[in-house]
Design a protein around this nucleic acid. Sequence first.
DNA 1: ATGCCTCAGCTCCTGAGA
Length: 274
Amino acid sequence: MGWGLQPRLTRKILTMKFATWNVNSLTVRLPQVLDWLQANPVDVLALQELKLTDDKFPVDAFRQAGYHAECFGQKTYNGVALLSREPALNVVRNVPGFADDMARSISAEVNGVRVIGAYFPNGQEPGSDKFEYKMAWLKGLRDWVRGELLTHPRLVLMGDYNITFDDADVWDPVGLKDTIHCTEEERYHLRALIALGLHDSFRLFAQPEKSYSWWDYRDFAFRRNHGLRIDHILVSDALKPLVTACVIDKAPRKNERPSDHAPVVVTLADTNKV
DNA sequence: ATGCCTCAGCTCCTGAGA
């Protein structure tokens, strides 16, 4: 009997990889996204800040790379998309129940998992109109996700949250205390999402200190690791036991014309056994 | 620091990002 016939070695472990990446203009970054997908053939990739309209979305380029693509574009600002190896079913654009003139959320079912890819509002500055909009958007998202979890216990909520969880996500927690992405009001909303039955997959594992997902273009911030962890992949209670890894891939941030964000990737094992 | 860097738009500059 050969080794290959032993059950230990023949049992197939099914895994799924989900990733999120704010590309800061898909027009500029398309070659990098295609390169990254070739090196990192994830099952689902959520993209944010496309900064292009649907008619300019490069659906053919992604199809040739082996991906279905669903887009929710917008001129100049925002814009999100979901790429998936398997077809995306029941696609929903924006946050139902929250009136919004910006393209910030796209969701679908892939392999029985409800996936939401979102570009959370920046908020600009505490006290500003944009900050109030951010707070309202977060409440709208939470009210929607609460209901989604009832009908889709297997759920992944990922994207550019524009919020840090705590000081561990901030390169200079003293200097940046109470500034945008680091305020208690924003973090309250992030914890409220967690309280729905979601988990920050990155912190399910030991991680390098000073792990960030965004670095300012200015002031050699990446080289000095002056960053924030504001891109997150939250998984539902039902999926949490299946998460085997979560990493931030800093490699694309070293490209010649990089996005200011790095991709985040989560790996789930045996998704069909849930 | 009303700055720094990058992107879109239609510019030779502004707004926005984070």
